[in-house]
């Protein structure tokens, strides 16, 4: 127990990094995922094909592999460099990996949300003379957004846990920090583990409750 108390600043620092990874890659995934969904439902076969290819490749590759590739390949082959500070650089590289991966799932959730809106809704909207944007804004999105809230909540929840994979390229987030603390305090492994596990429960439980509640409140009755 002492070890956990002594190392509390270190543990909190690690979780702060976990939170940053989650928030930043969550936002990027949301934007990029919606863009991908737009590609996949567009009337242009080129975009549909490109979107489908992206989603199928990224969704079926292990996250560990994606992050390792981002950590080693993006810098060495594509000359991607974010910072002279190596910690910061691998932080951003892992964000690219996490976002590239998560956005594929966001895309599928959003696309499924759009597809749950019955065709008749859109036809009715067009019949009363609404333009494309009006149809989207007033009829389709309000219904689609409600159905995607719960699955997006679960995605965010998974993302919190997935940030630990950044450890593979040396980002000092919670899991790698925990391992290092195991090395330093061989006699306090269980308290340290419980401390970190509690941290993740604290991070994910409110997310679960909130998204479940929102989803129930906004559910579309059909």
């Amino acid at each position: 127990m002492e070890a956990v108390v002594d190392e509390l600043p270190v543990i909190l620092g690690a979780f702060w990094l976990t939170v940053k990874l989650t928030v930043v890659s969550g936002l990027i995934s949301l934007v990029w995922g919606i863009a991908l969904a737009a590609m996949r439902v567009s009337p242009l076969p080129v975009l549909r094909g490109a979107g489908a290819l992206y989603v199928n490749v990224l969704r079926n590759t292990p996250l560990t592999l994606i992050i390792v590739f981002c950590g080693l390949g993006l810098g060495t082959v594509m000359d991607v460099q974010f910072s002279d500070d190596l910690s910061l650089n691998s932080f951003w590289l892992s964000i690219i990996g996490l976002s590239a991966y998560t956005s594929a799932f966001v895309c599928e959730v959003v696309r499924a949300g759009i597809n749950t809106v019955p065709l008749g809704q859109a036809e009715a909207a067009r019949a009363i003379g609404l333009t494309f944007l009006q149809t989207l804004r007033l009829v389709i999105l309000p219904q689609a957004v409600r159905t995607v809230i719960a699955p997006l909540g679960s995605l965010l929840n998974a993302l919190v846990k997935n940030t630990t994979v950044a450890a593979a390229i040396g980002v000092m987030e919670a899991a790698l920090r925990m391992k290092n603390l195991f090395d330093a305090h061989g006699d306090a492994i269980i308290p340290i583990f419980l401390g970190f596990a509690a941290g993740f429960v604290v991070l994910t439980l409110p997310l679960n409750l909130l998204s479940g509640r929102l989803a129930r409140r906004l559910a579309v009755v059909r």
């Binding site: 060495t76 000359d79 910690s87």
Partner: peptide, 20 residues
């Protein structure tokens, strides 16, 4: 700032070669 820790030294070589 100046140290990156990868999975094994083999992973370091491409990083060195390409000036990361």
């Amino acid at each position: 700032k100046n140290l990156t820790q990868q999975q094994g030294y083999g992973a370091c070589l491409p990083l060195l070669e390409n000036k990361q």
